[in-house]
């Protein structure tokens, strides 16, 4: 019994609520990936072990399973901390903004970089609880500045919006090139 207790002590590490959930998912993912080694990174012939394409995936997955197993063990053997599921809820809430980001990415090629960025800035400000005209104006200006600096001056590769083709000929080229 005392030996078991000292084993527990050895693996105890500081952690925060939700650590066990993360440790479990990470460990299971590592084990799943390890089971796929045979099909996803097969060993070929009798060549030098270090020159095998499968060597590094195998080595990294062995390390992942080993360390995540120990991390899981240390988490499972430590005292339970309250607030586990409240923490997981925070992770899920972060997914909402990942969704906002992907919708923004999806709309840019159609609506164009400038309009989409201004729209995204305003909607996200509203979503964050801001209603004042001053903040809305600031966000619109900030969005426009981002577009002008990156697409206008630095000429980063962001395609022009499909809707820009319907603009009057006099301003179309400018919008297609800089905004």
């Amino acid at each position: 019994m005392s030996r078991l207790k000292s084993l527990q002590e050895l693996f105890k590490r500081y952690r925060r609520p939700g650590d066990l959930v993360f440790a479990t998912v990470f460990f299971l993912t590592a084990v799943f990936l390890m089971t796929q080694l045979g099909t996803q990174a097969p060993w070929r012939g009798s060549r030098n072990i270090f020159a095998q394409p499968a060597f590094w995936p195998t080595a990294s997955l062995i390390a992942m399973v080993l360390f995540s197993g120990l991390h899981f063990l240390s988490s499972a053997l430590s005292d339970r901390q309250p607030g586990r599921w409240a923490e997981v809820w925070q992770w899920i809430r972060a997914c909402e903004f990942a969704g906002w980001f992907l919708v923004y990415v999806w709309i840019v090629p159609t609506l164009g970089y400038l309009p989409t960025t201004i729209l995204a800035a305003l909607l996200l400000a509203l979503r964050s609880g801001y209603r004042s005209l001053k903040i809305m104006l600031t966000m619109a200006i900030m969005a426009a500045v981002i577009v002008v600096v990156f697409r206008g001056f630095l000429q980063v590769r962001i395609p022009a919006g499909a809707l820009y083709d319907y603009l009057p000929a006099s301003i179309r080229v400018f919008w297609l090139t800089y905004l």
């Binding site: 590490r13 990470f26 590592a30 990936l33 796929q36 996803q40 990174a41 097969p42 070929r44 020159a51 394409p53 499968a54 590094w56 995936p57 080595a59 990294s60 997955l61 390390a63 992942m64 080993l66 360390f67 995540s68 120990l70 991390h71 240390s74």
Partner: peptide
């Protein structure tokens, strides 16, 4: 332990895709 598993995860991520010498597909599913 956490740093070890995350470093190993980083090494694993780098191996995903077409391997440059023999063009073997690794963990592309």
């Amino acid at each position: 332990f956490a740093a070890g598993m995350l470093a190993a995860f980083g090494i694993f991520l780098n191996t995903v895709g077409l391997e440059p010498v023999r063009y073997t597909r690794r963990f592309t599913f």
